[in-house]
Write a protein that binds this DNA or RNA. Sequence first.
DNA 1: TCGTCATATCGCGAAATTGCGATATACCGA
DNA 2: TCGGTATATCGCAATTTCGCGATATGACGA
Lengths: 121, 121
Amino acid sequence: MKHTYRKIAIWRYDGSVSELPDATDLALVFKALSNPTRVRILQWLKDPDSFPPQLEPAEEVGVCLKHIQARAEVSQSTASQYMAALQSAGLVTSHRIGQWTHYRRNEDRIARLADHIRTEL
Amino acid sequence: MKHTYRKIAIWRYDGSVSELPDATDLALVFKALSNPTRVRILQWLKDPDSFPPQLEPAEEVGVCLKHIQARAEVSQSTASQYMAALQSAGLVTSHRIGQWTHYRRNEDRIARLADHIRTEL
DNA sequence: TCGTCATATCGCGAAATTGCGATATACCGA
DNA sequence: TCGGTATATCGCAATTTCGCGATATGACGA
């Protein structure tokens, strides 16, 4: 008697369909977090006021890239790419004000991620 | 006035020291999870009885590699390496019985990971 | 309109990862 | 002891990632 697997299809509200609760999407988020520096940046952003002062209040709009770069001790291009990775994973949001791009944690998403791991992983 | 950062040292019981709650260790776990198939395997293992029957009860000792391999539709060597990756990240444990290696979720660790993300990430 | 600053993007060589087949190891039953 | 099965490991070519310098873009102030 040959064993077979029934693939479980999930229909989402947005119309997309996947075999299981998006193992692929989940893996993409984990990939963004697979770098120690990116993890540290996310941790640092829990306390935006630990960064140097800036024109716009960090608590509200986030921390500007320059400060993140300095603290992470990586090149400007690397810092920019790190934040882009975190953003496309949905873990941070960005706010452009004038010539500055500010990054802030997406607390909603991060909380949902923890929940996701607890229930679906 | 130049801004400086105070690095927070963490002394662990085992004597090791790190700058912050192990961003590096955390990143290693995320790396293991950065592959959709590995994520799916972990999800499948939530229900060991969904796998074909085997001599040893899957609920107790885990699922043997062969079954995981078949379901994941990867080569034997890839399946073995996938499970090794999950194991060295602490997400599964293995039990060798005779010629079979059985893999079982490390529920403790997974729960702690979710908790870790909620509180420290 | 310049020069400067902040950021994003491009292009690249180096390094790591990927997934596989081949092979090694180990257990088992005949 | 031998053949078959289950698993782990090796070695490799292909691909991807990594982090950087160089460069492009765009905002600002003089």
